[in-house]
Design a protein around this nucleic acid. Structure first.
Lengths: 215, 215
DNA sequence: GCAATAAACTAGCGAGCGATATTAAATTGA
DNA sequence: TCAATTTAATATCGCTCGCTAGTTTATTGC
């Protein structure tokens, strides 16, 4: 699925000069840094070292290439969230790992800064509405994944059964989205880490045993 | 400063047919909804009901028009934050009003959704780097304004002197930025309000009197 | 009324956009 | 060796981009 398997006998015609995987990584980084509308076919083909027809033969269209780049982002740089949700023993620890992982990728990533999804297509021309809807869907899916982990935590007793898991998931997703913007704006890693500390202090069990005081 | 004063005697030539203020509001809404790169001069002139030369006579260039639209946004739709910081008696109440005000504007605004600044130019083509830098500068200025209010609160005793006001300001700014993205993605106002409740529970004085328990 | 002034519109600039028809090059099967 | 097959590069396509030179229209001062 990732590459043309070397097992299959070489097909008939002229062999591919363009390495699909490598070209996709190149596209990912360009789209990540410049966004969908800010990246042109000329930018992409130049960075890949090919001419437009090759790109279109392999990827179909700019929009299809972008979606594949989003898939790849989710499977690589952006995979820290679902890995944390799947691997950590508690929802609380998963959230902490997500925030630290986000800072790691957003502030120290390969070249750009911020999240390709959170800081991807947000406002755009109406002719790109379907791309924007796709990106929005992926963002919402991340929130849903966090909520699912919180629901499990509620059923297991880690969180009170009355916990508003939807709100809590949206909340931590919002923090991650804010981290993405501020990482791009050049806010230092030290401040981002302290920001995450504050965000983690809102975890319900930290205050479950007493009512919130009114200032 | 806002309009050509009616006191001054009419200038010599043909009078302006394009209402500057009205045209700027039109531009603001288009840029807000579609972003800088997603809005074309043709979009703008069509919506204003004029031809390109009129726009260029009045506003100079697309980039200058965008910056003026950002100014106008800050003075109108986006003014809730600095008004809250200036008017509320405590930093805590200012923060609460900022979050509620953000939800109000982002989820119920005139037509678009989200914040023109937070969801404005984030990733873009290198030729628009100066616009991106301007937008980033405005976002950072908002954080600085919140921090200044927190510093005052620390000096007045509302916050502990040891409070990391920079982190706390970045944190609430991040929440607002996340609200902007999620409002655009169609997250319901009910969830956004509950999200804000969680965010407010991280306010330091809510937990200042005891150490955070480790789960 | 008429020159001066200023803003409006017509028409189109050069450049870049995403995408492709056409042709040349490289490999396999017979 | 050579037809068949597949990909790569050349050379654009039609369109839209931000922007403007040149002309027309509306108003004021004299």
């Amino acid at each position: 699925m990732v590459t043309t398997k070397t097992i299959a006998k070489r097909p008939r015609g002229r062999p591919r000069a363009l390495d699909r995987d490598e070209a996709l990584e190149t596209a990912l980084r360009l789209f990540w840094r410049r966004g969908y509308e800010g990246t042109s076919i000329a930018d992409l083909t130049e960075a890949m070292g090919v001419t437009p027809p090759s790109l279109y033969t392999v990827f179909g269209s700019k929009e299809q290439l972008y979606r594949e780049a989003l898939d790849r982002y989710g499977a690589t740089y952006g995979s820290f969230a679902q890995r944390a949700l799947a691997e950590e023993p508690s929802a609380r620890r998963a959230v902490e790992r997500i925030l630290r992982g986000a800072i790691e990728v957003y502030a120290e990533g390969p070249a750009p800064a911020g999240c390709m999804l959170a800081s991807g297509v947000v406002a755009c021309a109406p002719e790109h509405a379907s791309v924007a809807a796709d990106v929005a869907r992926r963002r919402l899916a991340t929130i849903a994944a966090i909520k699912a982990r919180f629901d499990r935590a509620a059923s297991e007793g880690e969180l009170a059964p009355s916990t508003d898991t939807q709100a809590l998931a949206s909340y931590y997703a919002a923090v991650v989205q804010g981290l993405s913007i501020q990482a791009r704006d050049g806010v230092s890693r030290k401040v981002l880490d302290a920001l995450a500390d504050v965000a983690l202090s809102a975890w319900p069990s930290s205050r479950a045993d007493r009512p919130a005081p009114s200032p």
